[in-house]
Amino acid sequence: MAGRYMNPFLTVYGHISLDQIVSVDEFPRMNTSVDVTNKQTSLGGTAANVAVTAARLGVPTAICAFVGNDFPKKYEDLMASSGLIMDEVVKVDGYDTSTAIVINDHDLNQKVLFFQGPHGYASKIGIDLLKNGKQSKFVHFCTGEPEYHIRIMKELRPSGCVIAIDPAQEIHRIWNERLLADAMAVSDMMFCNRFEAESVKRYLGTDLFEQVRYPFILCTKGSEGCDLYLDGEPMHFPIVEAEKVIDATGAGDSFRAGFYAGQYHGMSIEESVVVASTVASFTVEKTGALTNTPTWDQVMERADRYLARL
Score class of each variant (00 low, 15 high):
residue 1 M to W: 02
residue 3 G to I: 01
residue 8 P to V: 06
residue 9 F to H: 10
residue 10 L to T: 07
residue 10 L to N: 06
residue 10 L to A: 01
residue 11 T to L: 11
residue 12 V to G: 03
residue 14 G to T: 03
residue 16 I to F: 04
residue 18 L to V: 13
residue 22 V to K: 01
residue 25 D to S: 15
residue 26 E to W: 01
residue 29 R to C: 10
residue 29 R to D: 03
residue 32 T to M: 06
residue 32 T to V: 04
residue 32 T to D: 09
residue 35 D to M: 15
residue 38 N to S: 14
residue 41 T to A: 05
residue 41 T to C: 00
residue 45 G to Q: 08
residue 45 G to H: 03
residue 51 A to F: 04
residue 52 V to L: 15
residue 56 R to C: 12
residue 66 F to D: 05
residue 67 V to R: 08
residue 68 G to D: 12
residue 69 N to L: 13
residue 70 D to P: 06
residue 71 F to T: 00
residue 73 K to G: 10
residue 76 E to T: 14
residue 77 D to G: 02
residue 82 S to T: 08
residue 85 I to Y: 09
residue 86 M to G: 03
residue 88 E to V: 03
residue 88 E to P: 04
residue 88 E to G: 00
residue 96 D to I: 03
residue 96 D to C: 02
residue 98 S to M: 12
residue 100 A to N: 12
residue 107 D to H: 12
residue 110 Q to I: 02
residue 118 P to A: 06
residue 118 P to E: 02
residue 122 A to F: 01
residue 123 S to R: 02
residue 124 K to L: 12
residue 131 K to H: 15
residue 134 K to M: 07
residue 135 Q to W: 07
residue 136 S to L: 06
residue 140 H to V: 09
residue 147 E to W: 02
residue 151 R to S: 15
residue 158 P to G: 05
residue 159 S to K: 12
residue 160 G to W: 03
residue 161 C to Q: 09
residue 163 I to K: 09
residue 167 P to G: 09
residue 172 H to A: 13
residue 174 I to Y: 11
residue 174 I to R: 09
residue 176 N to L: 05
residue 182 D to H: 12
residue 185 A to R: 13
residue 188 D to E: 14
residue 193 N to Y: 06
residue 195 F to T: 08
residue 202 R to E: 13
residue 203 Y to I: 02
residue 206 T to L: 09
residue 206 T to E: 00
residue 208 L to C: 03
residue 214 Y to C: 02
residue 216 F to Q: 01
residue 221 K to A: 13
residue 225 G to S: 03
residue 226 C to G: 14
residue 227 D to C: 05
residue 227 D to E: 15
residue 228 L to I: 08
residue 231 D to P: 07
residue 232 G to F: 12
residue 233 E to I: 10
residue 236 H to P: 03
residue 238 P to C: 10
residue 238 P to W: 07
residue 239 I to P: 05
residue 240 V to F: 07
residue 241 E to T: 15
residue 243 E to H: 11
residue 245 V to D: 01
residue 246 I to S: 04
residue 248 A to G: 09
residue 250 G to D: 00
residue 250 G to K: 00
residue 256 R to V: 11
residue 258 G to A: 10
residue 258 G to W: 04
residue 260 Y to H: 11
residue 264 Y to H: 12
residue 265 H to D: 10
residue 265 H to N: 15
residue 266 G to K: 09
residue 266 G to A: 04
residue 270 E to H: 03
residue 270 E to I: 06
residue 271 E to T: 13
residue 273 V to H: 04
residue 281 S to M: 03
residue 283 T to A: 15
residue 284 V to R: 07
residue 287 T to N: 06
residue 291 T to S: 15
residue 297 D to A: 15
residue 302 R to D: 12
residue 303 A to G: 11
residue 303 A to V: 08
residue 307 L to M: 09
residue 308 A to C: 11
residue 308 A to Y: 00
residue 308 A to Q: 14
